[in-house]
Amino acid sequence: MRSMLPGAPWLLAHKSMLPVNQPLKVTLYGKDYVLWQDGTGTVQALPNRCPHMGAMLSEGWCEPLPDGDEGQSGIVCPFHALQFDGAGCTVLPGTQRKTLPQLQPLELIIQGDFIWSYGGHEPQIPIPSIMNEIAQAYDFIGPAADYSVETDLLSMLLVMHDYNHQNGTHRDLFRITSVDFHEFVDNGHQSHAMYDMVTDSYSWNEKLRKPDLLLMPDMIKAHIENHFPCLGILRVETALGKIAQCHFFLPEAENLTRTYILLFAQLTYPILKPFSRTFLKFGQVAVEQDVDILGKLYADAPKQIKLNNEVGMDWVRRNFDNFPKVVEPHLSK
């Protein structure tokens, strides 16, 4: 369990990923849960295993609560149609009385459209406030690239904070030829990395065949804002305006890590919003490439070479090894 950093906050979902009365299965710390949002906007979370015979509640459906207010709903087991409310209570067939709670709800912290949880553990570090700030300043574009990857949390975080891999892992689409690293600012569990990625230009014929490529700059000026261990934000300026691609990580099990992105934009003109979804496609491809490379690493291979500018990976290791404390060294450069 220590390798999954109990006491850290994890963003389970954005409400856009949770249509009203549509169950969603999520996994955290080796336990499966079912989430649902009712007609009042309330989000509930219960263990995904029906206490009768173990059916997956996420394979069931939602129905209005017979004793609830308008819009309130419970989750219905797909096996015997037992309905559970958000407290984990049900009414057994042939009775009129609600049972005591049969399932222990997962504690959620709802901040606007963001659904956070500590997975039942005592909080060790606070939920980063940056997502609330982004939601106020940017337009929400959408979610993408939701994957469960067969890798441990540390390996996932190391790859995502490796600023040297851009011209290898992401060469195919972005044609990144070099990475010019400028600055790393270490603020404990929060950090900033600034670097430029030089790209080979696409020809006009290629751009005409795939108009999305018109939005690809010759130089990608990246600002990565990191919040250990759950979040990395890629900030870039484009022809459409400012983009904030928020990249989340969650430990589903010891060797299974979930990752997904939420995209936000400050558009120069509102009419450009449909074009901003192109960056969702770019984000989807980038995550797919990261997921692919994670499956091509020998986990037990000794590291014999150290590259320049591995400061982001050093920052991850320091915080991982000492969680929840922040200790020296200070890695700003």
Rank of each mutant, 00 (worst) to 15 (best):
K98N: 03
A193N: 03
I75K: 02
G168H: 00
F181E: 10
I134Q: 13
D69S: 11
K273E: 07
F84L: 02
E63Y: 08
S178F: 00
Q304G: 08
G41H: 08
P128S: 07
C246K: 07
L108T: 09
L103P: 01
L24S: 09
D200I: 01
T259F: 06
F228L: 09
L12S: 03
S178H: 06
L331G: 00
A253E: 08
P9S: 13
L28H: 10
I109S: 15
A222G: 01
L214N: 13
P47L: 09
C77Q: 07
M56H: 07
H227W: 15
T99Q: 03
R209Q: 09
L82K: 04
M156L: 13
E122M: 10
G120M: 06
H121L: 02
V287Y: 01
A286L: 09
T268L: 10
I224A: 07
D314Y: 15
P123G: 12
N48D: 14
F84Q: 01
I127V: 14
K207A: 02
Q83F: 10
T95H: 09
Y269A: 11
T151E: 05
K296E: 14
P9N: 11
R235M: 04
W36N: 00
S3M: 11
A301R: 15
K221Q: 15
H165K: 02
I220W: 05
L267I: 02
K207P: 01
P6D: 10
G60H: 08
S148N: 09
E288N: 05
E310I: 08
Q190H: 12
M197D: 00
H182Y: 06
L231R: 13
C89S: 09
Q245W: 04
P105E: 02
W204M: 06
V327G: 01
N255F: 11
D152P: 06
V76F: 13
P274G: 02
Q136I: 05
D196S: 14
V287K: 02
N309E: 10
L297K: 14
F248N: 10
I271Y: 08
G94Y: 13
E70S: 05
E183F: 10
L28E: 05
A222C: 12
